[in-house]
Simulated scan of single mutants.
Amino acid sequence: MDLSSPTIKSYIELLEDLLLIRSVRPWHRNVGKRNVKSPKIYIRDSGLVHALLNIGDMDDLLNHPILGMSWKGFIIENILSELPKGTEYWYYRTFSGAEIDLFITYKTKVIAIEIKKTLSPKISKGFLISCEDIMATDKYLVYGGSETYPIGGETLAVSLQGILAINEL
């Protein structure tokens, strides 16, 4: 694109100010691991993403490579819109691939959230390792289904409605 880093940064800040994108900052305290330190950028309006990509219906969306990122952005926007004041949020990722899509701190809670667009969710070893790194008190996997149930490692699989109904959020 032949743009300098300061120019790109100012464009990203403008898009954030216009509420078109959201930057989720990385958490990178010293836990003895090499962590990713660049923010993740999500377009806040998934409908806008779909329109720009000429995705006309659900079949088009389900077969499109943007599905996973669009789902994550949609879930993150919904969760963050419900958080009380004083809540902080980040994502966590190590260079070895251990990752938490969203983690939230509020009062004494450290909430780890993995987001998967699937009807049969499974937690990854990287998610569990990351939860240990950040000392998560609560662990959730938000998926495309409607039930809430344990899936191992003290993690609950929950729907979007289920995660929004949890009192800690």
Rank of each mutant, 00 (worst) to 15 (best):
P84I: 00
F103A: 05
S159R: 05
L18G: 04
K139C: 00
L48H: 05
A136C: 06
K116W: 07
L48G: 02
S70A: 14
L67P: 00
V49E: 03
E82R: 15
V158L: 01
K109F: 15
K139W: 05
S96V: 03
N63V: 09
I104D: 02
M1W: 10
A51S: 12
P26M: 00
K107P: 09
I79N: 11
V24K: 13
S146R: 11
R29P: 02
V158G: 07
S96W: 04
G56N: 13
K33P: 05
D60K: 03
F95H: 14
K9V: 06
D59I: 10
F127Y: 09
G152H: 10
N35A: 14
E77W: 10
G32E: 04
G145R: 08
I163R: 11
A165E: 12
T108A: 14
Y11K: 01
I113N: 08
P150T: 08
Y143W: 12
L61N: 12
F95K: 15
G145Q: 07
D138C: 06
I76P: 01
V142I: 03
G97H: 11
V49I: 15
E16P: 04
R29D: 13
W71H: 09
V31D: 05
E168A: 14
I66E: 14
L80D: 05
L119D: 12
I79H: 05
G145H: 14
E168S: 13
K72F: 08
L169W: 13
I151W: 11
L18I: 05
Y42N: 08
G68P: 06
F103W: 13
